[in-house]
Simulated scan of single mutants.
Amino acid sequence: MSTDTSTDMRIAVFGANGYQGKLVVAELARRGIDAVLVGRDPDRLARAAAAVGVPDAERRVATVQDAPGLVGALRGCDAVINCAGPFTASGTQVVRAAIAGGLHCVDTSGEQLHIRAVFDTFGTAAREAGVAVVPATTDACVPVDLLAHLVAARLGPLDELVSTHVIAGGGAPSRGSLRSAIGTIEAIRAGGLVHEDGDWRPATDAPRTAVTLPGEPGATPVAPFPLPEVITVPRHVAVRRMAGLTEAGLTERLNRPVPPEVVDSLPEGPTGEERRRQRFRYVLDALGTGGRRARGIVRGSDTYGTTAVIAVESARRLAAEPPGAGVLAPAQAFGAADFLDHLGRHGLRWSIEEPPAG
């Protein structure tokens, strides 16, 4: 069982000067783990280190375009956390550099196509290098993936699993999130991928158009969405069909993305107070092949802060307690209940409910 006590390790943060990257560096400092800040601009790295209270942290300059330089910048670290999106465009270069350097690797991507590409491309190379790669160590994918594993342990093989994300408040997205949405807008508009009968295919229809959320009397309109756990969960759960949904209002807003030239003029991300006021609910509705149903529920606040906690804990566990080599889903790398209980100390709550028999 993992504890909150850190061993002597060094973890690199690629994209450390970004909004999510700075939160990850701050979480590493809180945990007493040495951070190595990596990015393409030395001045921005210095400002980021100072902004989070670690002005003397080691900083190394590297870009994804310079593969040997990126491998060198990661040298001497136990793991790397990639926070530099859009990940579909450049995230695989960081995975490749980590494998070449013999480091464990996680990232903070929620981009479905990037996550699938990591699984499809790097499994053999990661196993041969003896390192673990766990993409999508975020507020949503990790707890939902782990919870799906526990739900399936109750119900057995599943006929259907539907994941629904609903987020309220939290201010405007970060610039990085906006750039990721712009870079993957076609996948968002198409509704992403579903998993069906052993493979992934484009979503052509929604399993439902409304979902009744816990504690709410009325149904919330929902629409298909490219959720990361649709890529990870079927790798460890026997499920005939899995799909992702989010509130319909979010898909409507994302279908009208901010022009790329406007993004740089926007605030870097939500304020601390806005993040504290945010609430999220992730709901897993499962139907077993025998007809039993269950619902897994994840509740929390502050998606960006929770992602920092999850990414740091994921990288720390990979370095301290290697689960085996390869590209792994969260539930393949970590003990599901243990990790979820760890997150409970950071305000995340989870439960599994079954309707009464009869």
Rank of each mutant, 00 (worst) to 15 (best):
L227W: 08
V94A: 00
F225T: 08
L37E: 04
E321T: 15
R253W: 11
R292M: 03
Q20G: 14
E353N: 05
A337Y: 01
H104A: 10
G91D: 06
I185H: 14
R316L: 13
G110S: 15
N255K: 13
D78I: 12
C77S: 15
V71H: 08
L161N: 05
T121H: 11
T209M: 03
I81F: 12
T232L: 00
R47N: 05
A57T: 02
D8R: 14
G198C: 00
D285Y: 04
E27M: 08
H165P: 00
G123P: 00
V106E: 10
R75N: 13
H236V: 06
R241S: 15
T289R: 15
A210C: 03
P270A: 10
L28D: 06
V134P: 12
R59L: 11
V13F: 09
A336M: 03
R292L: 09
V298S: 01
D78H: 15
G296T: 10
V162W: 02
H114E: 14
K22Y: 05
M242T: 09
T204H: 06
R317M: 07
I297P: 02
L146C: 01
G176L: 13
D159K: 15
L23T: 09
P207E: 03
I188E: 02
E229C: 07
P143Y: 00
H149M: 07
R44L: 11
R281N: 09
V194H: 13
L113D: 14
L37C: 06
T220S: 01
T306W: 03
P42R: 03
D264K: 10
I33L: 06
A67E: 14
A132S: 13
F334W: 05
A97C: 08
T3Y: 02
P270V: 08
A136V: 07
